[in-house]
Write a protein that binds this DNA or RNA. Structure first.
Lengths: 345, 345
DNA sequence: CGCCGGACGGAAAACATTTTCCTGGCTTTC
DNA sequence: GAAAGCCAGGAAAATGTTTTCCGTCCGGCG
């Protein structure tokens, strides 16, 4: 079997070899609605096996006006937040026999729209948008318009972490998680907080900041706005932001970084500045990145079920029937207290 | 512009709107060899813009017998080793205006062959195989055969980290790196070593083990084979392997884990067993995973240029002219001594 | 015994592009 | 001034499937 090696075998050749028509061969080899008699069916299968037939996916996509591609758009695949989500999406897609197309934006919102258009050109079956929204209104409108075009063409779209788009969305409890965290830290005895808030235009970062501040206000703590430092959403961003915070001086007893990789940078910066965590300053993060669970001191954080979120988004886009209204599936956030936080001295 | 919304605009419609033939429209909008007069060119461009024309990628792939897809096959995208490589590959591919298809094998060698066949069905332009080879001869032969088919069809293949396949390969200095590491540890004063060797059938794991043992032998140290523990190539594998090692008892002063994620698990297991690193036992890893650089104690390891390796593999597959002989591009490995190793007590 | 319906097979149209080949007009060159 | 290219443009073939539509055969039923 599979002896054939000369170039590519077409369905035509299989049909000829089996002595049947193109239509019959097609019906046997793709499992259409129509039945084919046992004898011919066997002949076709045998010929296909012998010739090593492999359907031309482009031709199929053209004829069906739909490909077996599923898009996945992330900011940066090297970021463990996105690679966890990606793992969930690919797992689900491969279960369905689909193929994942990975697009990375490098955090340029406009790239998201471009990639989505490319996926539309490929007649992708579905797309999962995992990059977090910005507050850029024009960009969001363009993206929404492109999503409309994509769905109009028969494709399905699901998002992770950003509401407001015309698509089903898995929404992590960013606000509530950050608020819970704040309450736990207050209970622990902290009253003065500094926040590494990430980029000001990133919705996810903002939501976490808002949730945190909201809980502080409820507890009668006025957030000290000079202790909110914006910076890149990365480990190095966390490091640099912390240095700026220390340079400016702060009387905070606890530092909240709006994601784990920034918290990692923060701890490194504090250590380099000769400060101990948590004795001199407590530090908390957000996400509970698996790779960072072995950090010392272990990081107090808010756990998101990242891989599940990816799976769920893929499920929404692939197996769920399209809904009239965009659906929202909440993803719980759970505070995990570990060693990087302690009662203030 | 881009006012059109009714379904999908075809080239035919653009041509009609512009009052030219299909051929002319095609020539304008895809930059073929043939020139088109300035007047018609402008008309076509205007019509395309106005109608919001987007070429049907499937039809293009069919007509050209080649798509704009680039495959990337990894074991597990959530593993930072692979996500770093993936980052390099996607970066390069997107520079070329290509689209990356991500396949994950879950460490099943046979899946690699399946995914490659799928990519052939899609007439992918190139594929980067990043999963490490096993010693499974049958599996490797099947994979090699599928690679031949893929290249026969006009596709290009490049590998990361595994020689022996009929494709260009970026080869990290696993042996030499491990040997260098061993020599540095010997210089430091260590004489008795234990090794977390990963899965016995994984070439990368074996090469590192061999290199390490080779350097020990050269220094007149007979490796203690009861202190070589095999286990999963993951953080939890490292944890479990270390527990087994401790349960069996060892007099080693230094523990070499053949990758960083295993080393991370090892440190956690040692800590849970009440042992201090490096005072009671030194630990070294391999890869220098960026996300793990903030570990405490910071990890002595062997640095591989992971992202560069991905870029380079993509470059070999995309821009380099196909060679008669499979090329091998070496990737240097550099020992990085940090705090997880110290002279033995 | 004839009719009808269902099931199965095949011819051909459709899918959206690229590309080959042809044609008519233009320039260039003796 | 005519022959010999050259070049832009268009008609049509080709790419490999799916799917519609039609024909035929067979069995069952009246």
């Amino acid at each position: 079997m599979e002896s054939q090696s000369s170039g590519n075998v077409t369905l035509e050749q299989v049909a000829q070899h089996a002595g049947v028509s193109l239509a019959t061969a097609s019906r046997v080899l793709n499992g259409s609605t129509r039945q084919v008699g046992e004898k011919l069916r066997k002949k076709v299968m045998a010929s296909a096996g012998e010739l090593g037939y492999l359907p031309n996916a482009s031709a199929q996509a053209l004829a069906r006006n739909s490909s077996s591609l599923v898009g996945l758009i992330v900011h940066d695949i090297a970021d463990p937040y996105f690679s966890s989500i990606a793992s969930g999406v690919t797992g689900r897609a491969e279960e369905e026999g689909l193929v994942v197309v990975l697009g990375t934006t490098g955090r340029t919102p406009q790239r998201e729209t471009e990639i989505l258009a490319t996926l539309r050109a490929h007649r992708a079956k579905a797309v999962v948008l995992a990059g977090t929204r910005t507050v850029d209104e024009v960009g969001n409108r363009n993206l929404a318009a492109e999503i409309e075009r994509f769905t109009a063409q028969g494709g399905r779209v699901a998002c992770v972490s950003q509401g407001g788009l015309p698509a089903d969305t898995v929404v992590p409890a960013n606000r509530e998680g950050a608020a819970d965290l704040a309450r736990r830290l207050i209970t622990m005895g902290h009253r003065r907080f500094a926040v590494l808030a990430g980029p000001p235009d990133l919705r996810t970062a903002r939501d976490r900041l808002d949730g945190f501040h909201g809980a502080l206000s409820e507890a009668g703590i006025e957030p000290a706005y000079h202790d909110v430092v914006h910076g890149a959403f990365t480990r190095d961003g966390g490091y640099a932001s912390t240095q700026r915070l220390l340079a400016a001086g702060t009387d905070a007893t606890c530092l909240f970084a709006v994601n784990d990789v920034m918290a990692t940078g923060a701890i490194a910066a504090l250590r380099d500045a000769g400060l101990r965590v948590p004795e001199d300053l407590s530090v908390a993060g957000f996400d509970d990145i698996p790779t960072l669970r072995d950090l010392i001191p272990s990081l107090t954080t808010v756990r998101l079920p990242l891989e599940w979120m990816g799976q769920e988004a893929a499920r929404l886009a692939l197996t769920e029937a399209p809904a009239a209204q965009p659906r929202r599936v909440p993803a719980g956030a759970e505070v995990v207290l570990r060693d990087s936080t302690a009662p203030p001295a």
